[in-house]
Simulated scan of single mutants.
Amino acid sequence: MTSNAGDAAGRPLAIEARGLVKRFDGITAVDGVDLAVPEGAIYGILGPNGAGKTTTLRMLLGIIDPDAGVRRVLGHDRPHEVAHTIGYLPEERGLYPAMKAYEAIAFLGALRGLPLAEGRKRGKALLEEHGLGYAVDRQIRQLSKGMAQQVQLLGTLVHNPRLVVFDEPFSGLDALNQGKLEKMIRGLAAQGTTVIFSTHVIAHAERLCDEVAIIAGGRVPFAGPVDVARDRIRPQVRLETRANDGPWRSALPGDARHEGAFWNFSLPESGIEPLLRALIEGEAGILSLSIERAGLHDAFVAIAGEAAARALEQDSPEEPGR
């Protein structure tokens, strides 16, 4: 059965999931996850190791079945029916060591229905395009870990999928190759490809994603646009005045703190204009005023809690059934 469901804005969905539940040995790894990934979006699943990210992705792709809930991928209830249009990079990297780089790419494409001859041709072209032409005929065992990971990444894309799913794709990459991968993800989205990736690194999600699902303890307390997540916290105002006191002081919000030469406080619900008027009329002498919107890290803390935020910053391997 197929579905043409869309999100609240009427955009068609590449992935839709409702109430996904998965248990391992009596332990609930994913507990009622809802997701709606618009076509052509860059969508991040953000959470600490052990939060349920990998299990969620595997259920979406049909690698494992949920114990409860439903999911649709590219309009299909059975993800295997559209596997040839999906590219998947698992967290566990692995290629046959004796294969040459271009053959490894062709092999991964063949698993998705791409003829081997075409895969070999595309594999060589992709290696050249991404600055790895010198590695075309090298065996995987002759490549560095980072190079082998890039080969597997290209194998994920060789069949020109409509949907690409990356599980912790930045893990193990140096800063240069992380930047290359970010550029590649933006390029895929620009071509209309839907990209969904899991990560425990907030910076990647903040730079790349249109929307995110924040997952902690197997649940999703927030799923939606990054801007909406950031708006959970009021912007912060930083004010410097020439005068130290005066009638304008009564116009400052109740949470205003005088720290050094500056006043710091949350942007009032009425906006900045009434406060500016009071400062000017009260002759505060405004030397500087800036409004800083909350970042995704602050939003994550507010939504998922400090314990989940601390876990997010730890660089520990995920447990089985994550």
Score class of each variant (00 low, 15 high):
9 A>G: 12
9 A>T: 10
11 R>P: 13
11 R>Y: 08
13 L>H: 08
13 L>P: 06
15 I>L: 12
21 V>E: 15
23 R>I: 02
25 D>Q: 04
33 V>W: 02
39 E>F: 10
45 I>L: 15
52 G>A: 12
55 T>P: 13
64 I>V: 14
72 R>M: 04
74 L>K: 01
75 G>R: 09
75 G>K: 07
77 D>A: 15
77 D>M: 13
81 E>D: 14
84 H>S: 12
84 H>M: 05
89 L>P: 07
94 G>I: 00
98 A>G: 09
101 A>E: 04
103 E>P: 06
103 E>S: 02
104 A>P: 07
106 A>C: 09
117 A>S: 14
119 G>S: 09
120 R>F: 13
122 R>A: 05
126 L>Q: 11
143 L>G: 00
146 G>E: 00
147 M>Q: 11
162 R>E: 15
165 V>M: 09
167 D>H: 05
170 F>Y: 13
171 S>E: 15
172 G>C: 03
178 Q>Y: 00
190 A>Q: 13
192 G>R: 02
192 G>T: 03
196 I>T: 12
197 F>Q: 07
200 H>S: 13
209 C>D: 06
213 A>D: 04
215 I>K: 01
221 P>V: 03
225 P>K: 01
234 R>T: 13
234 R>K: 12
236 Q>R: 13
238 R>F: 14
241 T>D: 02
243 A>D: 13
251 A>R: 03
256 A>H: 04
270 S>Y: 01
272 I>D: 01
274 P>R: 03
275 L>F: 11
278 A>E: 15
279 L>Q: 04
280 I>D: 12
289 L>D: 12
292 E>A: 11
295 G>F: 10
296 L>W: 01
296 L>P: 03
297 H>F: 11
297 H>C: 11
304 A>G: 01
304 A>W: 01
305 G>W: 06
308 A>V: 06
309 A>V: 08
309 A>D: 07
314 Q>V: 11
320 P>T: 03
